[in-house]
Design a protein around this nucleic acid. Sequence first.
DNA 1: TTTTAGCACTCAATACGCGAGAGTGCTAAC
DNA 2: GTTAGCACTCTCGCGTATTGAGTGCTAAAA
Lengths: 349, 349
Amino acid sequence: MTSDVNLSEREQLVLQAVVHMYITTAEPAGSRALVKRFGLDFSPATVRNVMADLEDSGFLQQLHSSSGRVPTNRGYRHYVDYLMRVQQLTLAERARIEQELTRGLNDADELLRQTSHLLALVTHQTGIVEAPQEREAIVQTIELMPISNHRMALLLADSYGRIRTMTVNLEQPISSDDLSRTRQYLNDILRGVQVEHIKHTVETKARMIQDEQRRLAEQALHMVETLPLTRPGQLFLDGANQLFEQPEFHDIERAREVFLLLEEREQIIEMLRKGMRNAPPWTSVLIGSEAARQGFDEISVIAAPYCVKGKAVGMLGVLGPRRMPYPRLTAVVEYTADMLGRILTRLAG
Amino acid sequence: MTSDVNLSEREQLVLQAVVHMYITTAEPAGSRALVKRFGLDFSPATVRNVMADLEDSGFLQQLHSSSGRVPTNRGYRHYVDYLMRVQQLTLAERARIEQELTRGLNDADELLRQTSHLLALVTHQTGIVEAPQEREAIVQTIELMPISNHRMALLLADSYGRIRTMTVNLEQPISSDDLSRTRQYLNDILRGVQVEHIKHTVETKARMIQDEQRRLAEQALHMVETLPLTRPGQLFLDGANQLFEQPEFHDIERAREVFLLLEEREQIIEMLRKGMRNAPPWTSVLIGSEAARQGFDEISVIAAPYCVKGKAVGMLGVLGPRRMPYPRLTAVVEYTADMLGRILTRLAG
DNA sequence: TTTTAGCACTCAATACGCGAGAGTGCTAAC
DNA sequence: GTTAGCACTCTCGCGTATTGAGTGCTAAAA
């Protein structure tokens, strides 16, 4: 994502000023206002010339022929990649994030939800947290729990500290003895196996085993084969309401479009991962149509991966209008990802 | 909720016509249009007179001095209570609901989510499902599952077919023997006990027990006392986006207000239960400010309780603009509540 | 006495014109 | 290369005129 045009020092300065202006006021930036606001040591007329150049090279844009300038996607891109300095969070802010996250500590799912809530709260944007990729998780413990004569639950603790419950229909009641032997068996062969390989593992083992253990293995196979192990990634979203605050979503059509987008969970996950692929392993910023589908330029996303035991297992971030305070939000997202990773690692311990 | 004014046959006819007109077109109903649309056998002038009377007694309202009439809260109320005939669902519709619900059959939580989704889909409104009151649930089975040296999970299957997972921090590792003895102990004393009495039960038992079993009981007590058993009711919401379709929410301020309301889960639950208290045990319709807080008249809610093993354990329904097709939605909500109850009962075994 | 036709009136919605203001591009001077 | 000056453009807000749906009232008809 490098620019094919070299910008002069002055052009960079003006571009940055326009972005800052627009981010804070939501109004197109005019030459006079820029000079005044940022104390530039050249005149409005000069700024106008520079802005005209920046428009020619696609960094700025006019909404109509006599309005101030607004950054284009490319303008934001350049700003984020080269001009912006990620803000330092204050101690108080760091403390707050840490505190809010360690509160709901006992349950991993609760923690993830809490994180999305926190992101929304602190950034005043929509907070997004993708749950750890379940398929890649590793089996820690398996538990079987009878519910009725015809149903039982299979519980799975994974290496991310999450616990999944799945139910299994039984053709015939299972004795408590059988149950505990099957439990033992499942734990023996599955501990340390990746969740996505569970079925395969059980199947191969079952095929190899002879006589006496045979029944046990088939029992296990039967339980496992209907499990919904490949369900799609989970997403925790919070603070979509915040979008209403932004003037760009006062138009009902726009608002609706974003809300519709937010309902398409898979697409959002897809989007987050796209960001990760582009710039591993650090924070990525998706601007306008880079984030959403083509032709929908209103939103941006800042996302960062979080790591459990040193391995990136999921993404989190914020979604908001393209006109976003990137320096601050980037810092918040990074710090939150870091904290979440730490806490999850501790939980999975 | 009876009316203190007796309406003549003709007045009822006109009121009903106005409600139908407004529900379908979202435009205030004028006298001429009513006559034409409903083939009334008296003239527009007569309708005008009747409408003026209905306005005097508070059933209708004009938006401005020369506009058509629109029902008031009271108008809707009378319509719903006395005039409306609940629609019969077609066989196809029933089949669809049943089919959609039995699809996600294995997991109770999944089922509840699915139900809210279905409601949104079929009614084009926002679907709401309140999870069964957890506190009143009865313990079926308890399972303990080691996660690490310092954490374990306590799993609880209740009489509604739901499974809750809670984690417990351990001060020191617990042996597998101890774990299974404690599990046995917990099951012995808690099976059949209401969830809200768990802590109390364990405490009293622990106090009574002497010597040798003592340690076990204290172990159990320690596990149970930090459990988040009293967490607030859970709510499954789906299709809030549908609200954007309604012209009354094209105004951004209104839309925002509803979305804000939808975030306040406890208040929605409160609202649903209010409905149940008013008219047990059947479908209740909350109109305008009956549903939301005072002064916010834009929405209505249709809600019905669903029963597990014959006992009403939760509510479900739809939320939408006050201008709602009540006859059809009432039917859908009732049928869905019935189906959900059946399936849950089956699940709970 | 009830119903209806006719008519004047009201009000929202829409379009139109106008002036103010913000901001530009261009030219000429510095 | 930079800046001041100026004509020009376009949006926004406001007041006015027009239109049209719908009413209330009155007087005639049933």
